[in-house]
Write a protein that binds this DNA or RNA. Sequence first.
RNA 1: AGGGGUGUAGCCAAGUGGUAAGGCACUGGAUUUUGAUUCCAGCAUUCGUAGGUUCAAGUCCUGCCACCCCUGCCA
Length: 565
Amino acid sequence: MKLANGIDVDSIVPENELEEEIIEDIKAGRTKEVITRCPPEPSGYWHIAHAKAWTIDFDTAIKFGGKTYLRMDDTNPVKEEGEFSDSYMDDLAWLGYKPYKLVFASEAYFDDIYKIAEQMILDGKAYVCELSAEEVSATRGTLTEPGKESPYRNRTPEENLKLFHDMRDGKFADGKATLRAKIDMAHPNMNMRDPVMYRVLRAEHYKLGNKWCIYPMYDFAHPMEDALEGVTYSLCSMEFRDHRPLYDWFIENGWKKPFAPKQREFSRLTIENVLIGKRYLKQLVKEGYVNGWDDPRFPTLVGVRRRGYTANAIKQFVKSTGWGNVLEVTVPYSALEYYVREDLNKIATRAMVVLDPLKVVITNLEKSEEIEIENNPNDENSGKHKAVFGKEIYIEREDFSLNPPPKYNRLVEGGIVRLKGAYIIKCNKAVLDKDGNVDHLECEYLPETKSGEDNSGIKCKGTIHFVSKDNCFKVTIRQFKNLIKEEYKNPAKALSEGTAISEILEPNSLIETTALAENFLKDAKVEDKFQFMRKGYYCVDKDSTKDNLIFNSTISLKDGFKPNK
RNA sequence: AGGGGUGUAGCCAAGUGGUAAGGCACUGGAUUUUGAUUCCAGCAUUCGUAGGUUCAAGUCCUGCCACCCCUGCCA
């Protein structure tokens, strides 16, 4: 069986219940084309958890050759700010998604939604209620007791229509009237107890200005927007489960046409040790704990992108957490890191950078020699780049030890170690300064051990990286620790329980240092990703200047060194 | 007896009556000119719990327990 776009449904392997349902719908002729919608509310910056929703919205449609509308669900003028409504396009493009069309619900659908409301009034399905917000709340009942019907519930359709027009025409002050759906005040599902469809609200809408003084509520507007747009599957997070009966009620009593969009729900994603609540992130930006919404320590998409995480890693990660069938799934941060390393390992160019230099003099070397470094040993096509082995070089201070721990296979006095891509060297002497610290090393190289041409038979346990004095330059390194202290697995909960935000933050989560990088890195551009061999993955930060290249530490390499085993 | 949802390893998660996939994490070991990568092996005698049906139950039935969501004119 083929879809209109030529895709053979029988060749599609469903990966979750929704996809199974879609296949059934297609086979039964209920669905001709899979259309989804991605509805970010333009009121904040997008983070990793949003990426899960977007991935589901887009990938579900892509899998069936369908399309996805990007829809600004801007039904509340007091929450939405134009300031925030732009970055989603960049984020989406970064993730590799292209919306079929961008629509602003306010501009595109408010008129139609209004007309549907009028018809529902005429059908006796909606009424204008003049109870105050407090009174509505007081008459809603409780979880275990039914609510009371509004005294305005039995007005005639004609009366309701006139009053609704009065609402639209500004004859009611804010909060003085609402349009309510006439369902059932005793319904066990609280959402069905005559929910508000429209409220009177005088606020400047960032798109429509003061065109309206009434705004539809999400529960009413969303199913109507879906229906008007032809969305077949409206995917949202699990907390809307209880709203589904209402969604279906509005489709049946408001939309009334045979085509019915379906709301289906997936689990929200949360990550241990990551603070994701918008209002907290806002506070951190405002109070200067971080340097803006794209701070590399932030879980925002612009943040992780600047940190050096790849779009592919983010997508693979969110997919790995599944569709879910509970409110939210919580996964450890290491699950995310796995996908970041996996992707970077494939694409990052290898380079030698010494973060904490220790000078080494190669006493028996006359002149500098050119060497070659593989750009990526896991990728045959990545090529090599040139580096230099010189008389004066720098190695990582931690790669030499006067008192080596067990199993230490780096340099020790009298010992040997291989310099990556160059020769094996032997340490003859550690020269100490007046405080007893190692000032520099005097080593000799073993000429017959050149990398790739070594027939000496000399066995050497360790290999370390280095840079030569005449082939390196100084760069700035930004090392990050997790913003949130390790012990706060659920920082939002700690905050909601009254813990101060300053208490849960890791002190010194940003440390700026300098390092010596091989000259090869001089041409690096913003967002270029590298593996500093034996250290970790780094990418060029946008703060870099011509004279000061800044690298963000994306993530360290795994360290399997176990001195005690 | 408000309604809805969920219980499978430290975490995520397949499983749709036929004898517990996979991934993360972890632990061994092999390879390695990155202590990375890669590879190989180990990691639930049992699926919240107590019964029941069945030749056979994580899957079906009944009771119980635990956790999550719902009382905005937010989305």
